[in-house]
Amino acid sequence: MGLDHQTLVAFAKSWGLFYLIALAIGVLIYAFWPSNRKRFDRAKKSILDKDDRPGD
């Protein structure tokens, strides 16, 4: 193993945090992006449609 323990720990502690924040922001933007509203509304209602056969 080329990397020593301290380096890995430092990496895990710092970049892990950046990663978390970036991810959270990305997800929030996606969820609240105005043009996505219609798709989400359709998705949540579509499961209540009739579903006897594939392709309905």
């Binding site: 890995l8 895990a12 892990g16």
Partner: peptide, 20 residues
């Protein structure tokens, strides 16, 4: 990607833990 990175970042240092 999303799930593995968390686990990986946390676990990776443990592969060198013998040093500690």
């Amino acid at each position: 990607g999303v799930s593995a990175i968390g686990g990986f970042v946390e676990i990776a240092p443990l592969f060198t833990i013998q040093e500690t």
